[in-house]
Computed example of a mutant assay.
Amino acid sequence: MKNRITELFHIQYPIIQAGMIWASGWRLAAAVSNAGGLGIIGAGSMYPDVLRAHIQACKGATSKPFGVNVPLLYPDTEQLIGIIVEEKVPIVFTSAGNPKTWTPVLKAAGITVVHVVSSTAFALKSEAAGVDAVVAEGFEAGGHNGREETTTLVLIPGVAAQLKIPLIAAGGIGSGKAMAAAFALGAEGVQVGSRFVATPEASSHEHFKQAVVAAKEGDTMVALKKLTPVRLLKNHFYDAVKTAEDAGASPEALKNLLGRARAKAGMFEGNLEEGELEIGQVCALIGQIKPAAEVVQEIWDEFAATTRRIGSLLV
């Protein structure tokens, strides 16, 4: 396929792997890029020296384009951006912050910039800030979520109707059928997160991967709305948060309950009861762990078959 997304990133398929904390290391990014998609290293869980090591390892594992996702809410952002520029990473996805802050710096270094948003208003602000493309992420997504609670089915056509730059859809997309739906709504690419957690190359703990493939419909919920909304797999920690929120806990009390390194404990170290297990609703449709290259090919093949099937209905 050739469209604005494949040409922007110089990739074969308009399938982007999300830069998820504790899952998206260099092995996953390289595997997705080698398979024809765009692999992304998730810098949100990395110290600057760790990010540099992952970038260098990814360069050694693929000759294809790859990118880095940088959540702009972390204190090390300036150092992370500096390393990305020094290492000549070709593509950066920013999120959780103001794109005006770093887009000019990255663009001056010749880097393609994409920003992740959860509303049409922020999509337009990102376009005005000079980004090359936007990821619009619906409320089905795992991890940190939009306060607007707009679902992908509503968000994508709304953004597509007003945006001039290319649009990538995210949130609840883990199959070729979902990709076809996103394209029907106006997207030119998809960002896939949760499906790539359930791969051997993901750096998340095996216990977390098994919990993801075992999850059923209704096993995730959004919590911590007084802080930053986050979609979590239900466990003892989630139950404690829900109890506190139902009792009217203050933001400070919720911060104390969350503590430090709880996401690392859950997703990276495999503490399935006390850890923070960030995953999207689409986990209910993930039945097994399989290599990232197979995931990319299956999504593409199903997308092609779905679009042909829909086309045949018009004859």
Rank of each mutant, 00 (worst) to 15 (best):
E87C: 10
G142A: 06
Q79P: 02
I299V: 09
A18Q: 08
G176E: 06
I55P: 08
I83P: 04
G19E: 08
V114S: 06
R262G: 04
K290F: 00
A247M: 04
I310Q: 12
G266S: 04
I5N: 01
G270H: 03
V116D: 13
P48K: 03
P104H: 02
V159P: 11
A128L: 12
I310G: 02
L285M: 13
G42N: 03
V70F: 03
Y13N: 09
G259Y: 05
V114I: 15
I55C: 10
A181V: 09
A121M: 14
W102R: 02
R195Q: 12
L233K: 03
G36Q: 08
V159W: 04
H10D: 15
V296T: 09
L28I: 13
K64F: 09
A180I: 00
H207Q: 13
A96I: 11
K225M: 04
G176N: 10
L313R: 13
P75Q: 05
H54A: 11
Q297H: 15
A223S: 15
K255A: 12
E78R: 14
V296F: 09
K209T: 00
I40T: 14
G176R: 14
A182L: 00
A57C: 07
I41L: 05
L163I: 13
K2P: 00
Y47K: 14
V296K: 09
S118G: 15
M221V: 15
E274M: 13
F66H: 03
D76A: 07
A198P: 01
G19W: 10
A240S: 14
I91E: 06
F93L: 14
F196G: 09
A184Y: 03
G189W: 05
E278F: 09
E7G: 08
E127M: 07
G82N: 12
A187D: 10
G193I: 00
S45V: 05
K88D: 08
G174C: 10
S126C: 06
F208I: 10
I91D: 05
E148I: 01
G67W: 12
E245Y: 07
G82L: 01
I41N: 08
H207W: 04
D132S: 06
W26Q: 12
I111K: 01
A108G: 11
A128S: 14
A211I: 01
F303W: 12
A23H: 07
V315P: 05
S203T: 13
S119I: 00
A43Q: 08
E78P: 02
G218H: 11
A30F: 10
N3A: 02
L314Y: 12
L106P: 05
S203F: 06
L73A: 15
I40S: 08
A141H: 05
S95G: 11
A182D: 04
A18S: 14
D301K: 14
P14Q: 12
G193K: 02
G67E: 04
K107T: 13
G287M: 00
I84Y: 05
S33A: 11
K226F: 11
M1Q: 10
R4T: 15
L73W: 04
T151R: 03
E217T: 12
P99Y: 07
I41Y: 00
T120Y: 07
S204Q: 08
G138K: 06
